[in-house]
């Protein structure tokens, strides 16, 4: 954790997240909502979310080796990390994305 949160927010978006879903299913919507909530709580101002609906752009699935949906890919910071599921378990999401939780 050499990079301080202050420096990152000043220069670039530290967390580039991409969420793959398949159609506007309940599970997809849940995942999107969960992701937004978690990011607002712990990564305010340092993240960017990209949602990809594979039913519309199936050709994108192979690129990130998507198998399960929903899958969240942390593209930045390196290394790339992947977590699957609807992100309802916040603790695991934080572990998976390697985010230091901000005590509330």
């Amino acid at each position: 954790m050499s990079v301080s949160a202050h420096e990152v927010s000043a220069s670039v978006v530290a967390f580039q997240l991409r969420l793959y879903v398949a159609g506007q299913t309940v599970r997809s919507l849940t995942a999107i909502a969960n992701l937004q909530r978690i990011c607002e709580t712990h990564l305010a101002g340092q993240y960017r979310i990209e949602v990809i609906d594979l039913t519309k752009t199936p050709q994108l699935a192979a690129g990130d080796q998507i198998l399960a949906v929903p899958t969240l890919v942390r593209r930045l910071p390196e290394p790339i990390k992947k977590i699957i599921g609807d992100l309802s378990n916040e603790e695991r999401v934080l572990v998976g994305l390697d985010i230091q939780p901000i005590r509330s």
Partner: peptide, 25 residues
Amino acid sequence: VHIERSEIEETGDYDLEGLFIRLGY
């Protein structure tokens, strides 16, 4: 189709629709 257990963290419900989509595509 490659899946690396170490980079998979389960955080809730999921299915393998991604595989279906890729195969279908």
